[in-house]
Amino acid sequence: MATKTYCEMISRSQPGPGDGGNTGSWRVKRPIIDYDKCIPAKTKKRACFTCWLLCPDCVVSKTIPPAINLDYCKGCGICAEECPAGAIEMVDEASQTGKEK
């Protein structure tokens, strides 16, 4: 068999955070949770977690209150669309980045 610089025949990865890079940098809209409306935050009960269930990148924690890992959130907006309490708002990322500095 031929000698290879890289031993792998295929592209393969183990599960772990950020194998696709810091995908949070792709985000144009950022989800902001209003904890006054969020069901688990408001009731202090382990309930709802629709955002946790439906996030395609698993960046929402199943905690009270739920938190979003912005390192990897791509800003797709599914959580905001699906939240039964209307607690998540998608805001312009550009309006938020300034505040962090």
Binding site: Y6, I10, R12, Q14, P15
Partner: peptide, 29 residues
């Protein structure tokens, strides 16, 4: 594990820090 994951134009480290081949290396092999 994830098989046949997206490759970038260049090589890059995986989550465990080892270098992973890019598309052209895999096709060359």
């Amino acid at each position: 594990g994830n098989f046949n994951t997206v490759t970038l134009p260049d090589v890059r480290p995986g989550v465990d820090g080892t270098m992973r081949p890019g598309y052209i290396e895999i096709r060359h092999n």
